[in-house]
Design a protein around this nucleic acid. Structure first.
Lengths: 226, 226
DNA sequence: ATTACTATAGTGCGAGTAA
DNA sequence: TTTACTCGCACTATAGTAA
């Protein structure tokens, strides 16, 4: 979505558009946006074309209603600002199971990491990672989460090789109504553009849950618990 | 501020930029914004020129810090989204006293309004309004507040003339540390582009406080109390 | 690797105006 | 009064590239 359309949608929402219909002329909207009447009109048309709003003509302006899709995008913004200012304490995301390269399992099974997991998570992970691919627009959320506090897992040296530090975030997973506590997202970098998160857990999740690639999971990260 | 710059600033904030410095290359930022590296670089330069951020070069990217001014604009956005979703229960604004046209006093002193003020506010206003000019960027806040609930003052007919309905919002004012309870903003329209709010109060505020045009007031509106 | 300049391509803005 | 079209121009983004 173009930034100017988001701004337009926000102005409509500030007039109460998420709660009831808004009566506003393109001239008035233009003033609020500090753009021309023509551009305001175009933005309204664009928003309707993209199904963010509905409109109909009325005496001296138009009646605008914000659709579910529009409310959803505004709520996403609100959540992201909540993450910025640390008021959002629980991050929920949806991810799809996929097969990784197996590298994750190699790394986490190193004793230098395992002893820290035992100490800091109070459980020992199964020696493999569970890879969940996030939806494209979840990425800012996971990055914000990573930018916030997490549990630091120190790096170490072994046989002349360096194993870098990592951060873990306690979370729970949910699949078909079944909730798995004691999971954690592990990430080698604080913030890094990546659509896949690697999950560790005391149990072999694929077997425990009998799931295959493509299975959908709800991920819930409690930021207050890190 | 251009919408694209706000979006850029938000991305930086989501990397933790409001809490600590962020190490990010223009290429990585460009990916997150889904624009070219060149544009991302330009936006970073623009943000720094306008004092929203500070940056310095580092190995493999740049180190960005968000300034007070940048944090302020992000917080304003957050507040506005809070108003949209009704989580912001208290709206605070700053306004400057100015002399109105005296019309407000004429209208509110009509018996048809006065009896409603007595009943709905539990006090009778002084027969004049106290006009506070808001800062330009406070306008969306006041409009969002007006879009939310308020106390409805019904219109009426008198000698063939129509006196329209209005909304009042209980508030308190603060000037030089002195707090005046029992004030209310009165507005003839739910949402209307206007930089001046008219305040009513049981007392003649100019005399009570010994203030003149230009005096600064903090306005605090409790939306849960309407 | 980076950042960020110049030059060009492309998009979006607003003036004018019709309906 | 509205909304919203066409069209020209200006601004913005990106490609190419230097440092």
């Amino acid at each position: 979505m173009r930034p100017i359309l988001l701004k337009t949608l926000k102005i409509l929402a500030l007039q109460g558009g998420t709660r009831h219909s808004v009566h506003i002329s393109s001239t008035e909207l233009a003033m609020k946006l500090k753009i021309s009447q023509q551009s305001a009109s175009r933005h309204i048309i664009d928003l309707e074309k993209k199904d963010y709003i509905q409109k109909k003509y009325a005496q001296g302006g138009q009646i605008v209603n914000i659709n579910e899709k529009g409310i959803a995008i505004l709520r996403k913004e609100f959540t992201e600002y909540g993450l910025i200012f640390g008021t959002e304490k629980n991050v929920k995301m949806v991810g799809t199971l996929e097969t990784g390269l197996g590298e994750g399992g190699y790394y986490i099974s190193k004793e230098g990491y395992m002893e820290q997991f035992n100490k800091k998570l109070k459980w020992e992970p199964y020696k493999g990672t569970f890879n969940l691919r996030l939806d494209d627009n979840e990425v800012p959320k996971i990055e914000a989460m990573k930018a916030a506090e997490g549990i630091l897992i120190e790096g170490f040296e072994e046989e002349g090789r360096t194993f870098g530090k990592a951060w873990v975030f306690k979370c729970t997973l949910e699949n078909k109504g079944k909730i798995i506590e004691n999971c954690a997202i592990i990430s080698p970098k604080r913030t890094h553009y990546k659509k896949v998160v690697e999950i560790i857990s005391p149990v072999f999740l694929r077997k425990e849950l009998n799931v295959n690639d493509g299975a959908e999971f709800k991920i819930s990260i409690d930021l207050g618990d890190s």
